[in-house]
């Protein structure tokens, strides 16, 4: 999708933007060419999707504003309707209320320096909506909105080299130049040595430093365990937020749920789920 407008600097009006357009802060070329992570300017704000069930009384959890102060936030208000109800019907009745709430939340985010866009969707299926918006905005991460009292340290689970670049973009984008400390965490896989893991995490640290993080603010933690989900949620308790990667859907995830969801349920704090690189969206629409 091509945004015809020129990039602007200030925060966007919370509700006035009716164009389902991509982020104004993205470089214009991002829309035409497959984005290559390493070509992104390092000051680029990471785009984070924050889904909120506004009409069910879900509000912006405490700590979210601190966590996302440097992000470009796509604030998705959604309302899930049973299949027998026309979505139009709900929009007519609840649209205005929900919009004004979303506007408030966007205002709170903009007050701490984030940029925010709001989208309100009436849907029969939450996942369809979330997936569509991840594509549309090429979101780097999705927030599982739990609250945190304060945000001082963040646990970043690094699984392997795949997608590590996107994790680095997110972490540096959010926390470079802030007081927030980061712990890079890796669970040893089968046949993997401590040295391998150290090489991996040191590589990430170097990347983060190159992207503007303070080297002292990045720690490294390696552990050997059979149950990564438990380990991440357990370690997370010593921190205020968790950042982890998305998992490919499989039978296991179908039965037990996505690891990120499981972690969010046990850890109870905010979890940022870094999304896989999505196939280029503009190709699909260029019919």
């Amino acid at each position: 999708m091509t945004d015809p407008r020129t990039p602007t600097d200030g925060g966007q009006p919370p509700t006035g933007d009716e164009q389902p357009a991509t982020d104004d802060k993205q470089p214009a070329t991002d829309d035409e060419q497959p984005p290559a992570g390493d070509e992104q300017p390092q000051t680029d704000r990471p785009t984070v999707l924050v889904p909120l069930e506004v009409l069910e009384g879900e509000s912006l959890p405490a700590g979210t504003t601190e966590l996302l102060a440097n992000a470009h936030v796509v604030l998705l208000g959604y309302h899930v309707l049973p299949e027998q109800t026309a979505t139009e019907q709900a929009r007519e009745q609840f649209g205005e209320t929900a919009m004004s709430k979303l506007g408030e939340f966007a205002g709170a985010l903009e007050a701490v320096g984030a940029t925010a866009e709001t989208r309100l969707v009436f849907t029969h299926d939450k996942q369809t909506t979330v997936d569509r918006l991840i594509y549309e905005y090429d979101c780097l991460a999705v927030l599982v909105p739990n609250s945190a009292e304060r945000v001082e340290s963040v646990l970043v689970a690094v699984r392997g080299t795949v997608g590590v670049d996107r994790i680095a973009r997110l972490v540096a984008g959010l926390f470079a130049g802030t007081e927030i400390a980061v712990t890079l965490y890796h669970v040893l896989g089968e046949g993997e040595t401590d040295e391998d893991a150290e090489t991996l995490l040191n590589g990430v640290r170097a990347d983060l430093v190159e992207r503007g993080m303070d080297a002292d603010a990045v720690e490294i933690l390696i552990e050997e365990t059979e149950t990564p989900v438990d380990a991440i949620s357990g370690r997370g308790e010593a921190h205020d937020a968790v950042i982890m990667g998305e998992t490919d859907p499989s039978v296991t995830t179908f039965v037990f749920g996505m690891p990120a969801e499981q972690v969010a349920e046990r850890f109870l704090g905010p979890v940022l789920v870094v999304q896989r690189e999505r196939p280029e969206a503009t190709d699909a629409s260029a019919e």
Binding site: T15, T87, R91, V121, T123, T128, T129
Partner: peptide, 10 residues
């Protein structure tokens, strides 16, 4: 979106 939210087709 007409200022009151959009509709998801499912």
């Amino acid at each position: 979106d007409t200022g009151e939210g959009e509709l998801e087709r499912t």
